[in-house]
Computed example of a mutant assay.
Amino acid sequence: MDSERERAEDEWKSWQRGQVRNTLHLVSAAAQWILLLACLIYLGIDSLQPSTVRAHVQPISQSDKVLWTHIRYTGQSIKGVAVNLTAERGSIQIRNGSIMITCDGLYLVSLKGDIIFTDLEEKLLKLTLWKTDKTTSEVLWEQTVQDSSKAVNLTTVLFLFDQNNVTLQTSSNATIADLSFSLVFLGPFICSV
């Protein structure tokens, strides 16, 4: 009788610990969403202010232009070589297939397209967005594509620094179809433009 009572008490305590853990996870998730919402509201309010008020907060350049680029690409990619991106529109420079970052700050990134394997023996392929500077390279985002004709889709905000270059590479030879790649500077940090 005592062992059953102890077992029941142990189960009850275990259940209570699980409830506390679930509550902590819920509180943590709620706090993260509130912080994200606060950041988005801050960025929205800052972008809605008249340019005369924002001039001292966001010194992008003498003319208060928005830094952005939009790229459309269909073509071949070579294993380990940066995709030769060229800007369709926008004010951010692209040199040798690399997007040239000139402002420290937050960037909204959108990347959509289809990957078609050109080497039929390949079973998977990695599409990687790289950030490089004079001395280092770092992966910003990577998606593994397991089936040919697979769509890729990325929408995120990244913090990039002045003098960074952003490139796109594949781990195998492939055809990239209908790639749409946009990068928009959200600020409000200092630029070297």
Rank of each mutant, 00 (worst) to 15 (best):
residue 25 H to P: 01
residue 67 L to I: 05
residue 49 Q to H: 09
residue 63 S to R: 11
residue 43 L to P: 03
residue 38 A to T: 12
residue 77 S to R: 04
residue 126 K to P: 02
residue 90 G to F: 01
residue 26 L to Q: 11
residue 70 H to C: 02
residue 141 W to V: 01
residue 121 E to A: 09
residue 38 A to F: 14
residue 41 I to D: 08
residue 9 E to N: 10
residue 162 D to I: 03
residue 117 F to Q: 06
residue 41 I to S: 15
residue 188 P to G: 11
residue 30 A to W: 01
residue 20 V to Q: 11
residue 163 Q to V: 08
residue 164 N to G: 04
residue 106 L to V: 01
residue 53 V to C: 04
residue 57 V to G: 02
residue 94 I to Q: 07
residue 115 I to Y: 06
residue 167 T to P: 06
residue 170 T to W: 01
residue 6 E to P: 02
residue 107 Y to F: 11
residue 31 A to F: 00
residue 94 I to W: 05
residue 74 T to A: 13
residue 184 V to E: 05
residue 10 D to M: 15
residue 173 N to V: 04
residue 1 M to S: 10
residue 138 E to T: 01
residue 129 L to C: 03
residue 71 I to M: 02
residue 143 Q to P: 00
residue 36 L to K: 08
residue 91 S to L: 14
residue 55 A to P: 00
residue 64 D to Q: 15
residue 62 Q to T: 02
residue 124 L to H: 13
residue 41 I to T: 15
residue 94 I to C: 10
residue 90 G to V: 01
residue 159 F to K: 00
residue 45 I to F: 05
residue 154 L to E: 03
residue 130 W to S: 03
residue 86 T to G: 14
residue 75 G to R: 08
residue 89 R to S: 14
residue 90 G to S: 04
residue 134 K to H: 14
residue 67 L to T: 03
residue 180 S to P: 00
residue 40 L to R: 00
residue 25 H to D: 13
residue 119 D to Y: 04
residue 92 I to V: 15
residue 167 T to M: 11
residue 117 F to R: 07
residue 19 Q to N: 13
residue 125 L to Q: 07
residue 121 E to D: 11
residue 48 L to H: 07
residue 131 K to I: 00
residue 42 Y to K: 11
residue 96 N to D: 13
residue 90 G to A: 05
residue 162 D to Q: 12
residue 98 S to L: 10
residue 92 I to F: 02
residue 3 S to M: 13
residue 35 L to M: 12
residue 84 N to W: 06
residue 102 T to P: 00
residue 151 A to R: 05
residue 25 H to A: 08
residue 153 N to C: 05
residue 62 Q to E: 03
residue 120 L to T: 10
residue 34 I to Q: 10
residue 37 L to K: 11
residue 12 W to L: 15
residue 65 K to I: 07
residue 101 I to D: 01
residue 75 G to D: 07
residue 32 Q to H: 04
residue 91 S to M: 09
residue 135 T to K: 14
residue 150 K to W: 07
residue 8 A to D: 11
residue 75 G to K: 06
residue 181 F to A: 00
residue 90 G to E: 02
residue 155 T to K: 12
residue 13 K to W: 12
residue 144 T to H: 06
residue 176 I to Q: 04
residue 14 S to V: 09
residue 119 D to R: 09
residue 66 V to G: 02
residue 54 R to A: 02
residue 96 N to G: 12
residue 21 R to E: 15
residue 114 D to M: 08
residue 182 S to R: 08
